[in-house]
Design a binder for these strands. Structure first.
Lengths: 224, 224
DNA sequence: ATTATATGTGTATAATATACACAAATATAG
DNA sequence: CTATATTTGTGTATATTATACACATATAAT
C-alpha cells in the first residue's frame, strides 16, 4: 500500500516588468495534458533534496535564474494527477527582469511568460496552486520587502511603487509609501539618475540586503 | 530512479493547560529509534489524502481530537530518515484542554504530553520540525485568533491572557489586551461566572466563530 | 472581621498612519 | 525656441491607533 505514491515538485515563478506580473509556464511535451500549459516541475529524484529538484527542473525546462525561492504548499489530493497518486511540493519563486526578458523573448523554447491576468487553461490542479501562490505573493509583500527580488539591481523609486500598486491592485500614496520604505532604511540612494522618456530624471536606488537581514533578525514587521 | 521515495505525515499537536504549552509525542515501538520519542505520524496510504492520513495516524496513535489542523511544511532532506529516502509533510494542530487531559492522564498508552520547555530527545529531524512549529504558533497567534482553539468552550478572560503571555513569553497589559480583543468582537460574554480559588469570580466568555470567519473574509489583520 | 488574591475598568499621552498639492526637471510638439 | 505635457520629488496637519498606568470590587482563607 505504501510506496506507490510518486513525488513531484512544481514551481510558481513570478516575474515583473513595467507594470505586468507574469508567471512562467511550460508547454507539456507528453501525456497527460500533452501540449497543454503547466507549471514547470517534475519528479523528485532519489538523491536530491526538494529544493535541488525544483532548481534542476527549472533550469532544464526554462533556464530561468531564480533570485528567491521558498516552499509554498504541498498538494496531495487524490485524483489530482490522472497517472495515479502523485503528491506535489509546490515552490514559489521570484526572478529579476533580466532573467525575465531573456526567456520571454526566445519564442522557440517551450517555456513562456504569461501575464497573470491572461492565463491559459492549466494542466492538473495547477490553477489552484497558482491561485495560492498569488495570494502568498500579495500577502508577503505587505510585510516583507521581497518586492525587490522582482526588480533590477538599480531601479528608480517609481518602479517599486508601480510594482506595489500592480501587485496589490490599489493606489498607493507616493509620499507615504516612500516615508515607510525610507524608515526601514533598506534602500540606498545612488549617485545616478535615469531619464526614461519625458519627465524629470529619477534617482536610482539599490536594495540593502544587509539591512534587510538585520531587520529580519530583529523580527521587525512592516506593513504597507 | 523516481518512485523510490516514501511519503509520511507528521503532526505537531499543541495543547495548553493552566500556563503550560505541551506537545503530543509518541514512543516508538519499532526501529529505527525504537523506544525513542517522536511526533505522531506515519506513512501515507495510497487511497487517502494528506489530511486524512494525519487524522488517521493521530487517532490510531493518540486518540486526540484535533480542533485545528493546518499544513506546516514539507521536509525532504536527504538522510533525514535512516530507512532511506522519506519525505514528510508536517502538520500543525491544536487541541482543547479536554482532549488534552484525557490522553495525558492515560499513562498506559504510548502517547504523552510534554511541556515544550522540557522535551526529550526526538527521533529523526523532529526537533527541527517542532522548532518550526513553535515559531509558527507564536507568529500565528499575533495576527489570527487561533488561541481560542487551545481553550475550553467557555473560559474566563484571564485564561486567554495567560495563554498569550505564555505563548509569547512576555507580559501583556490586561486592559490594552482586552481593548483589542473586544474591538474585534470575537468574544461573547456569557451570563455565567466562575470562581476558582480565591479572588473575584470571573465572567465566562465564548469564542464567536461566525464573527471570526467574517473577519477573515474581510481580510482583517489583528496584531497583539 | 481582616487580609490576601484575582478580576474588572478608563483616561491621558505618544506613536503611527493618513490625507493632501505644488515645484522641479526633462521630452515633445508646435 | 517656447509652451506644454509628463514624471519625479518633497512636508505638514489631522486622525487613528497604541501605549502607559492605578485603584475599586468580589470572593476565599485566616
Amino acid at each position: 500500500m505504501k510506496n506507490k505514491i510518486q513525488l513531484t515538485v512544481d514551481a510558481v515563478v513570478f516575474g515583473y516588468d513595467s507594470g505586468n506580473i507574469s508567471v512562467l509556464l511550460v508547454k507539456r511535451k507528453y501525456e497527460p495534458f500533452k501540449d497543454g500549459w503547466a507549471l514547470p516541475g517534475g519528479f523528485v529524484l532519489e538523491n536530491e533534496n526538494l529544493e535541488q529538484a525544483v532548481q534542476r527542473e527549472l533550469s532544464e525546462e526554462t533556464g530561468a535564474k531564480i533570485n528567491y525561492l521558498e516552499q509554498l504548499y504541498t498538494f496531495g489530493d487524490l485524483g489530482r494527477d490522472p497517472r495515479g497518486r502523485v503528491v506535489s511540493v509546490a515552490y514559489f519563486g521570484l526572478v529579476k527582469p533580466n532573467a525575465f526578458k531573456l526567456t520571454a523573448s526566445t519564442d522557440a523554447k517551450k517555456a513562456e511568460w504569461f501575464d497573470i491576468k491572461r492565463l491559459p487553461k492549466l494542466a492538473f490542479d495547477h490553477k489552484k496552486i497558482l491561485k495560492i501562490a498569488i495570494e502568498r505573493l500579495q500577502g508577503k509583500i505587505t510585510y516583507e520587502p521581497i518586492g525587490f527580488e522582482l526588480l533590477d539591481k538599480k531601479f528608480p523609486f517609481s518602479d517599486l511603487e508601480k510594482l506595489y500598486t500592480t501587485l496589490l491592485d490599489r493606489e498607493i500614496d507616493r509620499r507615504n509609501f516612500k516615508k515607510k520604505i525610507t524608515s526601514l532604511k533598506v534602500l540606498d540612494e545612488l549617485d545616478e539618475k535615469v531619464s526614461i522618456g519625458r519627465g524629470r530624471p529619477a534617482s536610482l536606488f539599490s536594495f540593502n540586503k544587509k539591512r534587510y537581514f538585520q531587520l529580519k533578525m530583529e523580527g521587525i514587521i512592516f506593513e504597507i
